[in-house]
Write a protein that binds this DNA or RNA. Structure first.
Length: 297
DNA sequence: CACTTGACCTGTCCGC
DNA sequence: TGCGGACAGGTCAAGT
């Protein structure tokens, strides 16, 4: 589920709640969801919450970091006290959500701050996601940022929301896959970090680019349009709280509303918002791709 | 090496 | 209603 915007929305929420707070204890309900020694992070103060690609990092004062990957159905929900904070901010809480923990809860962190106790729930219906405790020292500096290269992570491409991201960088990165359709190439995390199935389709629509077009056939104008389409789609989604197709909720358990503004994702058969032509769904590399056959020719 | 497919899980939705 | 199958935002490993 979560791609870059969803993970960033969670990060923004968690940062407010967790920095300067302390992890008092950790309860692992599903052992496969948790790697590393949970006892290492107990009674540790949280110093930062960061994101790289679709991975969240929670830094602790003593030099450990808790990494979280939500994969398809993960959630990280912070609750001060039952049935309170989830209703602030003008958006309703998911009705299905109910009280936590629920049957999808895999890990529970007990958090204390200023003498008050709260809980952080890692829920993950499909059990693909994970929480992992590592040493900061295993996270290497790269390009002046605190990004990690661990075995379980292949090399990640540039962050598309970095200030120095340009269409030339996009062009250079896509050259890794000259013979692939541009949509498939875009989803390789080594090309760009954080683009998944929703934002690949949406970015290509904004760029008026056929998702089936091979990378080798792209023009500089295509790259320029695509680079700006990517940034536009990601920023718009963050602004609307991310995409909640099924499971996604932010750090307070609230849904995101980007899909209300989407042009093509999940819209097959519906008229294109620009030209009224029905949106088409095809399969590329085993994943659904949505596009407008007229606007993206 | 480049690329595709299956596997990992649980849940939902759609057609018969 | 019930049941089987397809499908779901991600990423590895194995296969072609």
């Amino acid at each position: 589920m979560p791609e870059l915007p969803e993970v960033e929305v969670i990060r923004l929420g968690l940062e407010k709640k967790l920095v300067q707070a302390t992890i008092q204890s950790v309860e692992v309900l599903n052992p496969k969801s948790f790697q590393g020694d949970a006892s290492l992070i107990q009674n540790q103060t949280i110093t930062a919450v960061w994101r790289r690609a679709k991975i969240l990092g929670i830094d602790l004062k003593d030099g450990h970091t808790v990494l979280v990957h939500l994969k398809m159905s993960g959630q990280l929900v912070f609750i001060d006290s039952p049935n309170s904070e989830r209703f602030i901010g003008g958006h309703p809480t998911l009705d299905m959500f109910g009280d936590l923990p629920n049957k999808s809860t895999r890990v529970i962190f007990t958090i204390t701050r200023l003498g008050k106790t709260s809980y952080l729930y890692f829920n993950d219906q499909r059990k693909f996601g994970w929480v992992k405790v590592v040493q900061n020292s295993t996270l290497r500096l790269r390009s002046g940022r605190e990004f990690k290269i661990q075995n379980f992570l292949k090399n990640l491409g540039p962050e598309p929301l970095d200030k120095d991201f340009t269409w030339q960088i996009l062009r250079q990165q896509l050259q890794r896959h000259k013979n692939l359709p541009v949509k498939v190439a875009l989803m390789d995390q080594a090309v760009l970090a954080g683009i998944g199935n929703i934002y690949a389709s949406e970015s290509l629509f904004l760029a008026h680019l056929d998702p089936r077009k091979k990378v080798s056939l792209l023009t500089d104008a295509n790259y320029q349009n695509l680079a700006s389409g990517i940034v536009q789609a990601l920023k718009l989604s963050i602004k609307h709280g991310g995409s909640s197709r099924a499971n996604f909720v932010n750090a307070l358990g609230q849904k995101g509303y980007f899909l209300d503004f989407a042009f093509v994702y999940g819209k097959n058969g519906e008229p294109c918002k620009t030209c009224q032509t029905p949106i088409v769904k095809i399969t590329q590399a085993g994943r659904g791709t949505y596009y407008c056959p007229k606007c993206q020719s």
